[in-house]
Amino acid sequence: MIECQKVKKVYNLGTSKEVVALEEATFYIPKGSFTLLVGPSGSGKSTLLALIGALTRPTSGKVVVDGEIVSKLPEDFASLYRREKVGFIFQKFHLLEELSVLENVVIPLIPTSSPTIYKKAQEVLKRFSIDHKAKSKVRKLSGGEQQRVAIARSLINDPKLLLADEPTANLDKRLTLEFIEILKELKGEGKTILLATHDPRFLELDFIDKILEVKEGYVIS
């Protein structure tokens, strides 16, 4: 599913502020697997997620996702790739606070201007039992509810790949456990999941297929 070949990322290349964020990394993540990305913050986990999600391009090397070379895509194609294949869950959820739950969830589908997007959104909300709050503003929800909205939004385009960046950093224990349950369920549906975290609790999970450790830019399988 995800194949990285000698992927290296240097920020501000060719300027005086050059920073090496990721040294040549080579690894493979099979389809339908659950992979953990661990390491201290600032070690290059986010860069790796950004490269796999085609939010940026590598300085050298190649990233192939689902048979598509995503490391060499013009920006608009990268967006298209994300829209069609990737679901993102961010550390701070990154929901638009002034919008309603429903409006937040449809965002990834608005550019498709398909007439069924609100129907789809309702379905996803129902699945995570947050549909009763569809009209409320995100700002007024509790942390747990916000998280479920974020998950619903990441799944509305039915992605093959789910990328999560420190999704539980702001959650208490109960909500983290709830989140883990959902992950398990999603893995059961055959989604490929890549989760970056420094929360040691994840290491104990029984359905982990692979652990990638990132340390000062180096990836160790």
């Binding site: 993102f88 990154h94 965002i107 990834p108 550019p111």
Partner: peptide, 16 residues
């Protein structure tokens, strides 16, 4: 700025 970043990360193209 953050909002537009989110939209783009969620698959909005420049033209959108």
């Amino acid at each position: 700025m953050k909002e537009i970043g989110i939209l783009k990360a969620l698959g909005w193209q420049i033209r959108d």
